[in-house]
Computed example of a mutant assay.
Amino acid sequence: MGGEGVLHKEVFVEPIPEALIPYLIDPNHRAVRDVYHTLNGEEWRIPAMNLIWKAGGGWNEHFERLEGMLFGYEDWQNDWWIAHRIEKSGGFGGIPFCCKVDSEGLKWMELAGFKALPPLAEIQIHIDDPDEETVAAALLAEDECAVALARFKLSLEMQRKLLDGGTRGPWQIDREQIPEINRHLKRQVDVVFRRSAP
């Protein structure tokens, strides 16, 4: 290697879009500077990382796995991290939401492979706090027909629609609106809390 260092360094400076400048805390801060380091010979990781970040469409577990691979994590480490994030907050990107389902709704979701919320009746969507199991238990306790709590993530577009006006829910979603919610699901629906059988 001669007198060269072990690391390769690249610096990217990207101007902040004009539309965001009025919202900056420091009006003199006009660019974002990213500094990347790789081992010499592994410079390809930098454009690959930039490509992942610019792919758009919302961050998900597939992007997270690719990023982990570029950081050099082994498959088992990426598997553990993704399973941990899904268990704690329902996956990557955005706010976790939840709703109660009755036994018919739970059966419908099982038959649908947990790819959709049941279109059987009106549902009430809440923001899910993965650190508050007591809240989940309380939601089920207040409705004797509810047997489980379903957690899901929505596209950024649908999150904005729900949160428009600054409300934190809950939101009443009627049967006609459920297909639209289902079109905006980012991944499968997880059943995170089941009522124990009497």
Score class of each variant (00 low, 15 high):
Leu185Met: 11
Glu87Lys: 10
Ala121Phe: 09
Lys107Met: 08
Gln177Cys: 01
Gly105Met: 03
Tyr23Leu: 11
Phe97Glu: 08
Gly56Trp: 05
Ile181Lys: 08
Ala112Val: 05
Trp108Arg: 11
Asp143Thr: 00
His184Cys: 13
Leu51Glu: 12
Met109Ile: 04
Gly113Met: 07
Thr38Lys: 01
Phe193Arg: 08
Ile86Gly: 00
Glu180Leu: 12
Ser196Thr: 07
Arg45Leu: 14
Leu24Asp: 06
Thr38Ile: 05
Ala197Gly: 11
Pro198Met: 05
Val189Met: 06
Leu139Met: 14
Lys100Leu: 09
Lys54Gly: 11
Leu149Ala: 02
Tyr23Lys: 12
Glu144Asp: 15
Ala137Gln: 02
Ala116Gln: 04
Pro22Ile: 02
Thr167Asp: 11
Thr167Leu: 11
Thr38His: 01
Trp44Ala: 11
Pro179Asp: 05
Met69Arg: 10
Gly169Met: 02
Leu51His: 06
Asp75Trp: 04
Asp79His: 07
Arg195Cys: 03
Ala31Gln: 05
Lys54Val: 05
Leu163His: 09
Lys186Leu: 14
Gly166Trp: 08
Ser196Leu: 04
Glu67Leu: 04
Val11Tyr: 08
Arg195Gln: 05
Ala121Ser: 15
Gln188His: 03
Gly93Pro: 01
Glu144Lys: 15
Phe152Gly: 12
Phe114Lys: 02
Ala55Gln: 11
Asn60Arg: 10
Ala146Gly: 11
Glu10Ala: 15
Phe114Val: 04
Asp129Tyr: 04
Leu111Ala: 11
Leu39Tyr: 07
Trp81Pro: 00
Ala148Leu: 14
Val11His: 09
Leu120Trp: 06
Asp143Met: 08
Glu132Ser: 15
Gly56Ile: 03
Pro15Arg: 07
Leu185Gly: 07
Met158Gln: 14
Glu64Asn: 09
Leu111Gly: 03
Asp164His: 13
Ser103Cys: 04
Leu111Phe: 05
Leu51Val: 02
Ala112Asn: 12
Leu51Phe: 09
Leu120Glu: 13
Cys98Asn: 10
Ala146Arg: 06
Ala146Asp: 09
Ala138Lys: 02
Gly5Arg: 01
Glu4Gln: 15
Phe92Ile: 09
Gly93Leu: 03
Glu144Trp: 10
Ala31Lys: 05
Glu104Val: 02
Val32Asn: 12
